[in-house]
Simulated scan of single mutants.
Amino acid sequence: MPIKDPDNIKWAVIFNLFIFAILGSLASYCYRILNGDKFRIGTLVAQIFISTFAGALVVLAASYFNWEFELAGGVAGLAGWSGATLIKALEERLIRKAKGDG
């Protein structure tokens, strides 16, 4: 049984949240380039994939918590910017909960 009615999903909103996540990813990568890192297409593609996954987690959280579009967009952009760092922090929190540490 689905959690939410799939007929009421606003695909334009979800698409826009993913765009924010990708823009955050590109902004983060450009910032690294400006700070002296060498441009590598493989690294850029990998960062976009990681940030898209982080954005997908934001879409799920936004749906669950009924966030307003502006809040969800901002969080999706930040998730895109932080990418793997956000995913690693969420993973560590999940592991602590699974172990019963908090």
Score class of each variant (00 low, 15 high):
Ala76Met: 01
Trp11Gln: 09
Tyr29Asp: 01
Ile3Ser: 10
Phe15Gln: 05
Thr52Tyr: 00
Ile33Pro: 01
Leu86Phe: 11
Ile9Pro: 06
Val13Asn: 14
Asp7Asn: 14
Gly100Lys: 10
Gly55His: 06
Gly83Ala: 07
Cys30Asn: 11
Ile14Pro: 03
Lys10Ile: 06
Val75Pro: 03
Phe18Glu: 08
Gly83Cys: 08
Thr52Asp: 04
Ala61Trp: 08
Phe18Ser: 09
Ala98Ile: 07
Asp37Trp: 15
Phe20Gln: 04
Ile33Arg: 10
Leu86Tyr: 08
Arg40His: 14
Pro2Cys: 05
Arg93His: 10
Lys4Tyr: 12
Leu78Cys: 06
Ala79Cys: 05
Leu60Asp: 11
Phe15Asp: 07
Val75Tyr: 02
Gly24Ser: 02
Leu94Arg: 05
Glu68Lys: 11
Leu86Cys: 00
Arg40Lys: 15
Tyr31Val: 10
Gly77Asn: 03
Asp101Ile: 04
Asp5Met: 06
Gly36Ser: 08
Asn8Gln: 15
Ile19Glu: 01
Ser82Ile: 14
Phe15Met: 11
Arg40Gln: 09
Ala72Phe: 02
Thr52Ile: 03
Gly73Pro: 09
Ala89Lys: 14
Ile33Glu: 03
Trp81Lys: 06
Ala56Asp: 01
Gly24His: 00
Phe65Cys: 11
Phe53Thr: 09
Glu91Thr: 14
Leu71Val: 13
Asn35Met: 14
Phe53Gly: 08
Ile33Thr: 06
Leu86Asn: 03
Leu94Ile: 12
Ala62His: 03
Ala62Met: 01
Gly24Val: 05
Trp81Tyr: 15
Gly83Trp: 01
Phe20Gly: 04
Ala72Val: 03
Val59Thr: 05
Leu26Met: 13
Ala62Tyr: 04
Ala27Met: 13
Leu57Cys: 11
Ile33Val: 12
Lys10Ala: 06
Gly80Asp: 05
Gly102Glu: 13
Glu91Ser: 15
Val75Asn: 02
Leu34Thr: 12
Ile19Ala: 02
Tyr64Val: 11
Gly24Ile: 03
Thr52Leu: 00
Phe53Trp: 11
Thr85His: 12
Pro6Arg: 10
Gly74Lys: 00
Asn35Arg: 15
Gly80Val: 04
Phe15Gly: 13
Ser63Lys: 13
Trp11Arg: 06
Ser63Arg: 15
Trp11Asn: 08
Phe15Ser: 09
Met1Lys: 08
Val59Asn: 03
Tyr31Gly: 10
Ile19Ser: 02
Val45Asn: 04
Phe15Lys: 08
Pro2Val: 09
Ala98Ser: 10
Leu26His: 05
Phe69Gly: 01
Lys4Gly: 09
Lys38Val: 02
Ala72Asp: 00
Gln47Ala: 15
Ser25Asp: 00
Trp67Tyr: 03
Ala54Asn: 04
Val13Ala: 12
Thr52Val: 04
Leu90Pro: 00
Ala54Gln: 00
Glu92Val: 14
Ala61Glu: 12
Ser51Phe: 08
Gly42Val: 03
Asn66Trp: 00
